[in-house]
């Protein structure tokens, strides 16, 4: 009992940041057909990989979520299903996940705080630019090169080496928010990084429903991004097999 260390249990999963509810969640690219195939493709890829039974455990950045979120927010879905989305209340989707990274906390924090680094491990982000001390501009890729979604975000919490939180500005393509806590792992085992990413599906039944359906895929993507973050910090690169030879035709 003398060796009990309560820091982790005290710090993790305490704070919460919610995306703004501006009612502006929408997507503004592509034709209906392209959007429909995007969703189909994404569903096939991620669902084909294997359904996750445990929904709701994961972490990381807004990147990918936006896509699905954006995609699901688009009206062609409603067209396709013939449903009317007006007048239903909206729900925020939130995913939390943690990983331990075998590097000093200051270094881990600094890498994330340099927001331009995010696309190096968030595969669905194309670009992030710091516009001012608090403000940044984000560009995320849609699957299959259908286009991009963009938004501005503000850092709303910044405690050096400890906590970062950001929130998209009202009027974004996708309302989203993220929060990352950095905690020393017990016994000099590096840094525990806990990320919570949330986004607000577009108002209405179908938006929320489809978002829930895509949640396992989103969760998977967030986990992959966090793992890439760990790989980058611990080894300086993200191991890959993309571009290696095979006998596939």
């Amino acid at each position: 009992m003398d060796t009990y260390d309560s820091r982790l249990s005290e710090i993790l999963r305490t704070a919460r940041i919610s995306p703004p509810s501006t009612g502006s969640s929408r997507i503004n690219v592509g034709t209906k057909e392209r959007m429909a195939s995007t969703i189909g493709g994404a569903l096939m890829v991620y669902y084909g990989m294997r359904r996750s039974d445990k929904v709701g455990v994961a972490l990381a950045l807004a990147g990918g979520s936006l896509i699905f979120r954006g995609v699901t927010g688009y009206c062609p879905i409603n067209d396709a299903t013939g449903r009317n989305t007006a007048g239903k209340e909206d729900v925020a989707i939130e995913i939390t996940s943690s990983l331990t990274i075998n590097r000093p906390r200051a270094e881990v924090y600094a890498f994330w705080r340099q927001l331009e680094n995010l696309p190096r491990f968030m595969s669905h982000l194309k670009d992030v630019q710091q516009l001012g001390p608090k403000r940044s501009h984000w560009v995320a890729k849609l699957p299959k090169g259908v286009g991009v979604v963009e938004w501005d975000a503000d850092l709303v919490k910044e405690e050096t080496d400890t906590l970062l939180a950001w929130r998209s500005l009202p009027g974004s393509d996708i309302d989203n928010a993220g929060e990352v806590a950095f905690v020393d792992a017990i016994g000099e085992r590096g840094t525990v990084v806990q990320a919570t990413i949330s986004y607000r599906p577009p108002a209405g039944d179908v938006g929320g429903g489809v978002a829930k359906l895509l949640n396992p895929a989103f969760e998977q993507m967030v986990k992959q991004d966090l793992h890439a973050f760990k790989q980058l910090l611990e080894t300086g690169e993200v191991p890959t097999i993309e571009g290696q030879p095979s006998g596939r035709r």
């Binding site: 300086g236 690169e237 191991p239 890959t240 095979s246």
Partner: peptide
């Protein structure tokens, strides 16, 4: 199993 012609591998990461 089959012996096939495939592209040569290349460096994909610094290490």
């Amino acid at each position: 199993l089959r012996v096939e012609r495939v592209p040569d591998p290349s460096i994909l990461n610094p290490k």
